[in-house]
Computed example of a mutant assay.
Amino acid sequence: MNATSDPALLARRSVALPTGLLELTLDDGAAEADDLLGFAARANAKRGFLFLSKVLGKHWPARPAAMLAVHERLAATVPEDEGPLVFIAMAETAIGLGQGVFEAWLRAHPGREALFIHTTRYRVGSGPLIEFEEAHSHAPRQFLHLPEDPALRALLLGARTLVLVDDEASTGNTFLNLTDACRRLNPGIARVHLATITNFMGRAATAGLAARFGLPVSMGALVSGEYRFAPADYVAPAGMAQRFDPDADRGASPAFGRLGLRATLRAPTELAARLAGEFTLGARVAVLGTGEFMHAALLLGRALENRGLDVRVQSSTRSPILTWGAVDHALSFPDNYGEGVPNFIYNIAPGQYDHVLVCHETAPNAALRAFAGQLGARLFHFQSETDVEEVPVR
């Protein structure tokens, strides 16, 4: 999107992608849309476009301070409703965003009770799983674990308000599927709030959410509008993006949100202080999360940013995206969770940063070393919030 001051041009966009024609009408937030998002083409037969967020820390390198500011803005959209509240972040793309919104809400409401939990495509432990579908996704099966801790489970089962967080809303179908699953578990849910960076459902569909959901629904988004997409004659490459095995241990951790959290994660300040002492002041540093493990990278990145380093945060993903538009570089590497699904990192090239730090929750393995080897990166295994071990790359 090209910068312009013409309100009419700001409100209307037409983007010709290799996969089709995307047309947008922006109702709110048009003036900052260029700062918040770009457009990319998915290598996905179900949906050929991507609203690529520049402040999410997933497909685009984002400054930690900018990400935290977005978290605070979205947390401020949550209504002052009766609690307890349950914040659910959508895997994989919005896990870090949802955790950040939850933590921003906690900071703004000291003493209030809330639960954070994120959906996942991996099993943790042996407890019950709730399954729902993200139909347009490259990997459509999603799961929500029931917390094992009795107090956290009581929060989920006693919630009055669901706060569902994703980077974008386009149809509302995934939110509805998850809400229905949660209401079967907890019929006492009285309200849903949707928090997204962009909402492209359109005014009419947004106004009709309460009727679709069968209970009051509010929406908080930084950019709102409506889209139309006309697919081109593009054939997406065949490939499996999900091989869920309920009995397989993929090395996903229970400590960072899959089984629920009621407090903010602590930043690894000792690690940040040590690394900052090794780096030149103002050095360019990329701090990368891996797959669903995102928020710890932001916390480390922010701690380094506070020490005078020029930091960007982003994460690897299983989503295949074409090198076009808002994606000018792509690297592929093996899956460190062991599903045998290709993973990618976008918009980061070897030699672009002075230092690259990869944060991961899985045990060290050949896939992680291959990833680090492509970028000349260092590996940091987070076994808990503050128990972080640097792993030799060779």
Results as ranks from 00 to 15, higher is better:
341 V>S: 04
157 L>Y: 03
310 D>R: 11
375 L>P: 02
201 M>P: 03
69 A>N: 12
86 V>Q: 08
275 L>N: 00
198 T>Q: 13
289 G>W: 08
53 S>W: 01
130 I>Q: 15
66 A>M: 02
382 F>D: 07
20 G>R: 08
221 A>I: 01
78 V>N: 06
222 L>P: 06
326 A>N: 06
47 R>E: 14
8 A>T: 12
290 T>M: 09
308 G>E: 11
357 L>Q: 07
140 P>L: 10
321 I>H: 04
383 Q>H: 10
314 Q>A: 10
356 V>L: 07
151 A>L: 12
161 T>V: 14
137 S>L: 00
129 L>P: 02
152 L>I: 11
109 H>P: 01
187 P>N: 13
336 N>H: 15
12 R>V: 05
131 E>N: 13
72 E>H: 12
359 C>F: 03
108 A>G: 09
255 A>Q: 12
5 S>E: 09
281 L>S: 15
70 V>L: 08
276 A>H: 06
156 L>S: 10
393 V>K: 05
251 G>A: 03
219 M>P: 01
25 T>N: 07
250 R>Q: 00
137 S>M: 00
202 G>C: 06
42 R>M: 12
338 G>H: 05
77 T>R: 08
114 A>Q: 11
71 H>E: 09
15 V>H: 01
151 A>C: 06
384 S>M: 13
89 A>S: 15
384 S>Q: 14
271 L>Q: 12
279 F>Q: 11
91 A>F: 05
88 I>C: 15
208 G>R: 05
84 P>F: 07
